[in-house]
């Protein structure tokens, strides 16, 4: 089942075109990583899905229902974690979740049961002080709890990890990994390692256009530009090797830094032996020879560059 679908969405602020012909869809029980630089249009897209902004043209569907601007009914399917979630500082986490349950019309017993479960999932079960003294990470965790309270079909997280320190980031990613078992997740980020950790499918957005879409594995393989890293005994030999391999037809690029040579080529497994035979022929002593895994970062830089 398709949980979220965007069809030819356009949005501009004044003369600035922020979103240009954006179309993509997210299937049930998947984790969709929405990747882009700052200002690429990620937050704008999320706000349009929530009906907080009106698209200039195009259609957005959540669980098959069309999103309308302003008061949208589709929000009852959605749990939303803003990039910097803000709460009523004079409440404690339990009071806040009870309030959230009441305004979504959840029966009191269900709210209480889920509050207990969610607070222990995000590690705030013993925090009874008021929210005003919370750290960024604690607010983010409470944000996930409130977003999951009414068991939404779709959880939208806007840059859930970018404002956090490494420990806070790991905590949030762990919580999202747990949350994926019960809902579909769309999250935006510019941190690629986060995407590699939890996303199944990704969409890369740049200057308001979707540049790439598909499963993480497929995208990594599709844009296959392999890199071989060779560690040599001295910077001189590294320089020599870097220049020699440039003449080979299958090498796209080669560079060296100190005693390490990086060779970019079309297929490392097939042409790797030719590099090796070159090393033997020229009698160059090798300390380490390594084929680097294709990373999303390389793909991202290639696409967005």
């Amino acid at each position: 089942m398709t949980i979220l679908q965007l069809k030819n969405v356009y949005k501009s602020f004044g003369k600035l075109e922020v979103i240009k012909d954006l179309s993509f869809s997210v299937e049930e029980h998947s984790v969709f990583g929405f990747i882009g630089k700052n200002g690429a249009g990620k937050t704008t897209t999320m706000k349009m899905i929530l009906g907080f902004l009106r698209p200039d043209s195009g259609e957005i569907y959540v669980c098959g229902e069309r999103v309308s601007y302003g008061n949208t009914k589709t929000n009852r399917h959605i749990g939303y974690l803003p990039d910097v979630p803000e709460f009523y500082g004079y409440m404690n986490p339990k009071e806040y979740l009870k309030f959230c349950g009441d305004i979504t019309g959840l029966p009191r017993e269900i709210t209480l049961a889920r509050t207990k479960e969610l607070l222990s999932m995000v590690g705030l079960e013993n925090t009874n002080r008021r929210i005003r003294g919370f750290s960024r990470g604690m607010k983010q965790r409470l944000g996930i709890a409130q977003a999951l309270l009414n068991e939404p079909k779709l959880l939208i997280c806007d840059e859930p990890t970018s404002a956090l320190d490494p420990i806070g980031r790991k905590e949030i990613l762990d919580i999202l990994s747990v949350a994926r078992t019960r809902t579909t997740i769309v999250f935006s980020t510019h941190i690629l390692s986060d995407v590699e950790r939890i996303a199944d499918t990704i969409g890369v957005i740049d200057q308001g256009k979707l540049m790439l879409e598909g499963s993480v594995q497929k995208i990594k393989n599709m844009r296959r530009k392999d890199t071989i890293q060779i560690l040599l005994s001295s910077p001189e030999t590294a320089k020599e090797l870097a220049e020699k391999v440039k003449e080979l037809p299958f090498v796209i690029e080669s560079e060296f830094e100190m005693d390490t040579v990086l060779i970019k080529l079309t297929n490392a497994e097939e042409y790797g032996k030719e590099i090796m035979s070159l090393l033997v022929r020229e009698n160059i002593p090798v300390l380490r020879y390594e084929i680097l895994e294709p990373s999303l970062e390389n793909v991202f830089l290639e696409v967005v560059g």
Partner: peptide
């Protein structure tokens, strides 16, 4: 200004 209504409205509470 603080953005505290965002969570509330995202839960589908009518603005009216």
């Amino acid at each position: 200004t603080r953005g505290t209504l965002v969570n509330v409205l995202a839960k589908g509470l009518g603005r009216h």
